[in-house]
């Protein structure tokens, strides 16, 4: 699976896919998409990087990537943002919206071009869920590749 065509295509295409996934995660409260969709796109870019290379290259490349801590930080951060609503309100209350904190700007009502500094807890939850989804799906593909693959490499 590691021909020159696939390697060249990956070298050109993978950065574009990763940037597109990060864009979907970070602009989840403005444009279509969100944490899950952006995480899936980002994980597909990382899966392209995994599948197109040899076994030892993948091992060296993903040795220092903290996938399990990212997954745990994503889940705990999502629960923490939900628990933040318990400060006087209910679970999952959007407390940061319209408060002036980071991502706490005020959205004009009606049709507007979209401002990044809005959204309240939605932006934080998008980032945490995206982190969690990309770590989970990438670790599944990586463990499939490292445990099952690597024996016959002729196609």
């Amino acid at each position: 699976m590691t021909t020159t065509i696939i390697k060249t295509t990956t070298r050109i295409l993978a950065p574009l896919i990763l940037v597109f996934g990060a864009y979907i995660i970070l602009h989840g409260h403005l444009t279509p998409g969100g944490g899950f969709q952006g995480g899936a796109v980002f994980a597909s870019g990382l899966a392209l990087l995994i599948v197109a290379c040899e076994d030892r290259v993948v091992k060296r490349r993903f040795e220092k990537v903290p996938l399990s801590p990212l997954e745990s930080i994503g889940a705990l951060g999502f629960l923490g943002m939900a628990l933040l609503g318990l400060m006087g309100y209910t679970f999952f209350k959007n407390v940061i919206a319209n408060s002036g904190f980071i991502f706490g700007g005020r959205t004009p009502i009606g049709i507007n071009p979209g401002f990044l500094n809005t959204g309240g807890t939605l932006a934080y939850m998008n980032i945490f869920v995206g982190m969690k989804v990309l770590a989970g799906l990438t670790s599944i593909v990586l463990i499939f590749f490292l445990l099952l693959g690597g024996k016959k490499d002729e196609w």
Binding site: H29, T31, G34, A97, G104, T107, G120, N126
Partner: peptide, 22 residues
């Protein structure tokens, strides 16, 4: 737009109004 202060109504439904689903 006034309550969740986000343009994307689908995301505000998924993460705010129906947060338990997520």
């Amino acid at each position: 737009q006034a309550e969740a202060s986000a343009n994307n109504v689908v995301t505000s439904v998924v993460f705010d109004y129906r947060g338990f689903d997520t």
